[in-house]
Amino acid sequence: MRRERRRVERADDVGPYRLLRLERDGLDAGEPGQFFMLEAPGRLLPRPLSVCLATPAELAFLIDPVGPGTRPLAALAPGDAIHLLGPLGRGFRLDVERPLLVGGGIGIAPLPYLSARLGGPPALLGFRTAGHAEAAALLPGAEVVIDPVLVTDALPSGHDVLACGPEPMLRALTAIYPDAQLAWEAPMACGYGACYGCAVELDGRLQRLCIEGPVVAARRVTGASTMRAGR
């Protein structure tokens, strides 16, 4: 387990988000839904980010610059270099028959890579504002709803749901699709099981999300509100 150092190839605005493209140079992209710990310049701890796009030349991460770690990450420019560790955790199972990708807000982050690996299944995205919805360009062909319409208002039946988004959305999906695969988040210091900070209640007891997830079967999540992502 070793950190690698990679150069920023490009960084693009995608609505209010920033798509950070790092040179890949032999890095294993892992499975969709797995994540990397990215060095946040000037901060003590790295930040967990799932792979948004994986090309032969680049790994890209979608960043919502809302906190002291994500802001300097979003400010990186081509030529800058950062350390990263990964791929980590457990991603989405790809052996599904009728996949439907569901994303809410920055939860779109792992879906472009997931879509590419599944051959472009149908997708449904929800956003707070039309500005945030510009990020839907990362997933061409996706159906988009904007608040006050919610993804659960537009959800078709008979699918294998693979989703990432804010906790209320994941909770609502759990009630409808108990077999859904949901990508959760929690504050993480390390991402590799060392700090025990990312504990969430799964199967009735606190477990490390970085080891058990971040993608877990909806029915396994038994606890009350646990998500407070590291920003």
């Binding site: 900070g197 606190l206 590291g230």
Partner: peptide, 10 residues
């Protein structure tokens, strides 16, 4: 089991 989350903060 330890304390309830969140249980780390930078």
């Amino acid at each position: 089991e330890g304390n309830p989350p969140p249980r780390i903060a930078e």
